[in-house]
């Protein structure tokens, strides 16, 4: 790790980052909350990729998930409810050198920020988007979210959620120009790490829906899935995610799925009985808006001044 290469040659690096270099404030999530594991995975991926903390920006909205930037030792932007994606896109628009992460939740992304979710996916700027989906509003204390399962009682629907939950995967798979969609559960460390690592390495918007446990308000959601792994289906492929046998043993259902096949991805996403885990869809060639929005970045002041005078000439006599 320390610069030692496969051929035993030693690469001396000016800076080497350890996990600690990415750790910000002490997380204040509840005990047993799935967010802790996701944060650990993010720290690890940053460390493995040796991201410079000063060149890394974690953007979030509002909610339990959106506290994540405070627990990073990078730059961070803890903004408004639902608005993480437009801000993150703006950060990336003229700063291709920055590594931008987005932490959002099911309320933040799928409800108040739904418009931005749809459009940010289509922009396909180089962002790593992690949706912490616990199926409940946690920070405001147990209100129904778009993904709260039917009949789960909440403070806004005490006799249970009235409508079937939204399926964020099928919605996302319906958006033009998407380039990376994955789903994981927070409680499998290896799969979690592998998928987030792939998501980060992907050039374009990577959308990772993380089914995440909230033991305080809706323990049943995570517990059911944890107790009945047969309700999940692990998707592996050489182009997608590859895990070792220990992971495969934990998820008895698995299938080979080529993530370039969007039709197959949609079929897996639609199955309510076996929630897919792994990378559903991957297209490294989708047009990237961040490459377009950065146009002209390299221009010098002299060139800009000449351009400005040319613009004025259009109105001159």
């Amino acid at each position: 790790m320390f610069g030692l290469k496969g051929d035993w040659s030693l690469e001396v690096k000016e800076r080497y980052f350890t996990l600690e270099d990415y750790c910000g404030a002490e997380p204040r999530w509840c005990t047993g909350c799935g967010d802790h594991g996701i944060l650990a995975a993010v720290h690890r991926v940053c460390r493995d990729a040796q991201l410079k903390p000063e060149k890394t920006v974690a953007v979030s909205g509002i909610g339990c998930s959106s506290r994540l930037p405070h627990y990073m030792n990078t730059y961070g932007f803890h903004g408004l409810h639902g608005r993480a994606l437009p801000v993150a896109c703006g950060v990336k628009s003229r700063r291709p050198d920055l590594d931008v992460w987005v932490a959002t939740g099911d309320g933040d992304c799928f409800s108040i920020g739904a418009a931005h979710w749809i459009h940010a996916m289509r922009y396909n700027m180089d962002l790593t988007v992690l949706v912490f989906d616990n199926g409940i509003y946690g920070l405001t204390k147990k209100q129904t979210s778009p993904t709260t399962p039917l009949d789960v009682p909440t403070n806004t629907h005490p006799s249970g959620a009235l409508l079937p939950p939204m399926n964020p995967l099928t919605v996302t798979l319906g958006i033009t120009n998407i380039s990376f969609i994955a789903q994981i559960v927070d409680w499998n460390a290896q799969l979690r790490h592998e998928v987030i690592k792939k998501a980060h390495a992907h050039k374009g918007t990577s959308f990772v829906r993380i089914i995440q446990r909230c033991p305080v308000y809706v323990e049943s959601i995570g517990k059911t899935l944890q107790d009945e792994p047969a309700r999940l289906k692990l998707l592996t492929h050489e182009k997608g995610v590859q895990v070792d046998d220990t992971v495969k043993r934990q998820f008895p259902n698995h299938a080979e799925h080529d993530p370039s096949d969007i039709h197959a991805a949609r079929e897996f996403a639609e199955n309510p009985d076996e929630l897919p885990l792994g990378i559903l869809y991957l297209n490294p060639d989708a047009p990237r808006y961040d490459l377009m929005s950065a146009a002209g970045l390299e221009m010098t002041a002299e060139e800009r001044l000449a351009g400005l005078n040319e613009a004025l000439d259009h109105f001159a006599i």
Binding site: A115, M292, R304
Partner: peptide, 19 residues
């Protein structure tokens, strides 16, 4: 483009200012 700038047409007013 003459001064190296870019117009982003956002999905809504909020996204525009957020961007």
């Amino acid at each position: 483009h003459l001064t190296g700038g870019f117009v982003h047409q956002a999905e809504d007013e909020i996204a525009a200012i957020g961007f």
